[in-house]
Design a binder for these strands. Sequence first.
DNA 1: CAAGATTGAACCCTCAATCTTA
DNA 2: TAAGATTGAGGGTTCAATCTTG
Lengths: 158, 158
Amino acid sequence: VSTSRPPHTRHRARGGAALSKAEAELWQAWKHASDSVISRVEHDIAEATGLSGADYGVLSQLVELGRGKLRQQELADSLSWHKSRLSHHLSRMEARALVRRTPAKTNVVLVAITASGKQALRSARPGHARSVRAHLTRKVLPAERKHCLALLIRLDNE
Amino acid sequence: VSTSRPPHTRHRARGGAALSKAEAELWQAWKHASDSVISRVEHDIAEATGLSGADYGVLSQLVELGRGKLRQQELADSLSWHKSRLSHHLSRMEARALVRRTPAKTNVVLVAITASGKQALRSARPGHARSVRAHLTRKVLPAERKHCLALLIRLDNE
DNA sequence: CAAGATTGAACCCTCAATCTTA
DNA sequence: TAAGATTGAGGGTTCAATCTTG
């Protein structure tokens, strides 16, 4: 009915040969796991505090990387976000008074967490920690932790 | 990444104690890796064929799970998608003639891949396989593959 | 010109409400 | 009522174009 079912793709993985069963399995597992861990944590935070995962990431980078303030571009880099994504997002966060933008020297914009941003972050932290533990760190056994970290870093690079 | 942890938040180490350095490290690595692997693959597919990762997932489930057709609900389950996400997405795909929806017996809608959907999928497959290999499967060493798969499944469950 | 930032259009996803039919 | 599906609103993300200033 459809395209040819790949009959024997097992022995040689040439340029565009179909994924082997093992490869497809790994890919599916990766898609599902990466999707579900992140979205569970984000769901937990949002439910408890009204902050999205993105909001939480912005606020915590501001306090942990800067001491409450960062240049916008530096913030974008630390989050691996496109600058326009950050720009749009900060507009929304600014409207909610979580951050404030102030033009600085030349071409640069400083982003600062506000008092209510700090408050929101403070009250979100415990739940965030609980959620990360429940959905990620508790499920990675101590024995595999180091190895797992190395793999994740390898996957992120290049 | 500076890490001055307020010492006075430590003694209340109930459920919500701040993440340890190791935990935070794992969480950051997870966020970055899961984000970048998926988005690299999606970017590659989109660039080569104009299909999004979501499009590709829908089309391949249709041919691999059904034989070109599936009940909408079943399709949603297999993708772990909310039904409304699938409904919206199918509307867009239907407008591009990649799939066709036909109401069946009772309350059920059958989703079928069209000829051009098959064509699009066929031409996207080799690039998809190359991309998945480049960004995921080749980076997981043979020795760690099995272990990695088990971890991913563990993370997805519960 | 280049770097930093913004904007608007188009697309995507979630949530809650709704429609339809058994 | 319940299951299957749709709809609309509202955020969120990307891309390309634009603005601004050194």
